[in-house]
Design a protein around this nucleic acid. Sequence first.
DNA 1: AACCAGGAACACC
DNA 2: GGTGTTCCTGGTT
Length: 325
Amino acid sequence: MGSPGCERMGFTAPSPLYISHPHTDTRMAWLDETEDVKPPRSLLGIPELSWPGVYLPCYDRLAIEENPWVLKMTQSPVPAAPTTRTPEPSPPVPSQPQEPPCEMQGQVEERCLEQVQSMVVGEVLKDVDTACRLLNIAPDPLDWSCVHVQKWLLWTEHLYKLPQVSTMFQELSGRDLCSMTEADFRQRSSQFGDMLYAHLDIWRSAASMNDRSPPEDGKSAADDDSWSDVICKYPTQPIHLWQFLRELLLKPHNYSRCIRWLNKEKGIFKIEDSAHVARLWGIRKNRPAMNYDKLSRSIRQYYKKGIIRKPDVSRRLVYQFVNPV
DNA sequence: AACCAGGAACACC
DNA sequence: GGTGTTCCTGGTT
């Protein structure tokens, strides 16, 4: 590896990165199969660059529309821009002087951009981290086995609603994958090769960034759950279903559309989208035939073990952890 | 139709 | 043996 992460991330290179405000429920629009989650590039004013426009799952078009100023980040920061750029509606900066000197305004914008950049980097790392734990794969693609590569491909298919492309990349380790050029990717999948290549690029960038700044203890990328401490060691022991469910529940900004707490204190949760939860579990366990019927059977196995039960008032798709955290 | 409950056989570690 | 998967029958919402 060894290529500079930030450039690969698209912060210095002209790579569009669709971003939005984090922690909105709309972040997981990709989970909703009825929607086309990729924002129309033309509408966003993003030029059709050679980069395929990787759409990060944590960012969605609604929030982009709500925060048009963020779009600046998605556009090429080529040198020509600053002098001709028209003033955009500023992000909420309290008590801003009415007519700030140009320099000051530039500084403010620069600081805003820096803040947004670091926010985006954080969100990207978080998403990679989440995917790593859900798939039980290492963050660095170079460490992937053929099985890991297939998992990642299945995940990416799911993420971007691609047709089955994983078959085009069989028998490849992560190292093989990383040694491939964009042209190699396109050769295997003319339609989606560039997208996969770009997505892999993000992962490699995230890995290289992690290399340079290992997560500090306690407050890591998965800052909103103490749970991650338990199973943060990536390619280790298999995860239990109840652990997996809890992990989804502890990422509400990612998965609240498919599973959410009804009463966190009591450990009562509801599966909002049974098919999606089952599919995620299937990806995680490498069981393509997984469905809610089977998943719920596994949940029912927990009844006699005293791990999960039905709440006192039984409701469809609602379960309860016997020992809530 | 989708969900729920649980038996049974099986695979995998 | 523990855990989860797969298949099944039959009941409920």
